[in-house]
Simulated assay, not measured.
Amino acid sequence: MNKDRLRSIIYIVIAATLLSTGGIIIKFIDLPAMTIAGGRAIFSTVVVWLYVKKPKFTFSKAQISGALCYSAMIIGFVIANKLTTAANAIILQFTAPIWVAILSVWVLKERIRWYDTAAIFSVAIGMVLFFMDDVSGGNWTGNMVAIGSGIALAGVTISLRFQKDEKPVETTLLGHMITAVIGIPFLIGLSFTTGDLIGLFVLGTFQVGIAYIFYSLAVKHLTALEAILIMFLEPILNPIWVFLIAGERPGPISLVGGAIVLGTVIARSLLANRMNQIEANKYVNHQIEG
């Protein structure tokens, strides 16, 4: 293994670990969800802008839709963490690849593959288990918001496929800016403790801003599948931190549902990568024979 590849693996593990702290930090900040989302976005906007230095905003339909979906995704994640368990919030958000498969049929006119159909049914079973376990109104609402956050993340992915000259970092930066603007009214008139300000600073600077920088540096030397699989550390570590520090634990049925969802999404990623390689090899062989 060369040094660049090893360094990239370390970087993306750091990124996943930093992102996984979101659940526990949000739990300990005694502020409304929209205030947290807006405050975090202000810090993350500064950090990512300093990293990009000269962002290129084209304000194309794809960039704007991607930024709006990104904003909805990060706002939804904060709200979900306030209403349901951290495990439910992050795992239900990680259903995004399944929503991408569904939306691709409608938006991109792509055919849905057999393993996508199987994954959709399997994830649906996992999500039903989440709702069976969390019968209280707050948890039920939080689960719905978390699913919405996953759909929004899928919207970001679809939007990026339409972009030509824009870069993902510029789309996400615009998403942070939109979130900051939306959140400003929820910051006015509130009194913040030192702990609140430290929490918002850590969320925006490290949990999102620096985590994304490490991620962007890592993906240059890793395959897309490697990056995706390593990033699955986030939904695994997120509820672990919350359990160890705050004592919050999901119910047994939710744990089964979470295992089904994560297992399905990982299996689909592996299978999709394998099928794409087979199709690529067939195309190359056909070109050679032709």
Rank of each mutant, 00 (worst) to 15 (best):
L68C: 09
I64L: 15
I79Y: 14
L68A: 11
T58A: 02
V78E: 08
I75W: 07
A33K: 09
C69D: 07
I36G: 07
A33C: 01
G38K: 03
G39E: 00
S44F: 09
G39D: 00
A67F: 11
S71R: 09
V52H: 03
V52A: 13
L68I: 15
K61R: 15
V46Q: 05
C69Q: 01
K82C: 06
A33T: 01
G39A: 06
T45L: 11
V47Q: 00
F57P: 08
M73H: 15
P32A: 03
L31V: 01
I79F: 14
K56E: 14
Q63R: 02
G39V: 01
G76N: 10
I74L: 13
A37I: 10
Q63L: 10
A33E: 06
I36Q: 03
G66T: 11
S60H: 03
W49S: 14
I64K: 02
A80K: 05
L31F: 06
I74V: 15
A67E: 09
I79A: 13
G66Y: 04
G66M: 11
A41M: 08
S44G: 05
V52Q: 08
A62N: 12
Q63S: 15
V52C: 13
Q63P: 10
K56C: 01
Y51E: 06
F77C: 10
S71H: 00
I79R: 04
A33H: 04
A37G: 11
R40D: 08
R40W: 00
A41T: 02
F59K: 07
C69R: 00
V46L: 12
T58C: 08
C69F: 15
A80T: 08
S44R: 10
S71T: 15
K61H: 09
A72I: 09
T35I: 00
A80N: 08
V78A: 12
K61F: 13
S65L: 12
W49I: 06
G66W: 02
V52S: 09
N81C: 03
I42D: 05
A72D: 01
A41Y: 07
R40I: 06
T45M: 12
L50G: 10
F59E: 10
T58I: 11
G39F: 00
